[in-house]
Amino acid sequence: MSCFHMLFRHRRLIWNLTLLDFRLRYAGSRLGLVWMLLAPLLMLGAYLLLFGGILQVRPDQSSTGVEYGLLIACGLLPWIGFSEGVTRGTASVLAQRNLIKSHVFPMELFPVSAVCAGLIGQLCGTLLLLVLLGLRGMLGPNLAVLPFLLILQALFTVGLVWFLSCVNIIYRDTSQVVVLMMVLLMFISPIAYTQEMAPAGLKLVVELNPISYLIEGYRNALLYNQFPNVRGLVIFGGLALLVLLAGYRYFMHLRRVLPDYV
């Protein structure tokens, strides 16, 4: 519980760091924040072109290209938030090595702010998607689950990143490996397909992938206006908590010696 207490106590600092993260990422670039929307849109376009246009994938016979596009968007948004958080978060502590050596700073916040920055990008995209869905009249009361899903996703990612950012300090290759793993994970996550569409051989893989539950949750809330699959939600929620607490313990266990290794 000290973990939640810490997060709450530093909430303003986390917010400041997250803003800073944004500012730094786009400082000096011309398009600035436009990139934040441009990158996911480009990715969505690429997905649509490849799976919808060339491979002619459809969740079922009756669905249109637009519906398929929305389905991809619902999968892509949490994925981008998650993978941004993980890749940036893993490198975040090491990236601040100068600061860690010269300032007395709660460094467990760097991974947190990296994850938050990823989530903000996701949120902006989600708002855009909500407008789109609203125009099509597809929104329903089950949307209320969305914040809950976001929180679970954040906790899961933060826990994971606490662990990975520590390991990255000793094994600098970690961040490279993580980037690769993210590419692989992207393909076994049901972004451009649904869990049902996965072939029998791959079903187990998709089911073991925690991100599947997350994406499914988002789809249910946004697209199908269904209450999320309770079993999936409980599994993911439990996992998120477990990962968060374990990651926190690991980080705090090592934080005293970390400055000697960076």
Partner: peptide
């Protein structure tokens, strides 16, 4: 307050 390496931030 520490001034260990200044300007690092």
């Amino acid at each position: 307050s520490a001034l260990l390496e200044i300007g690092t931030g």
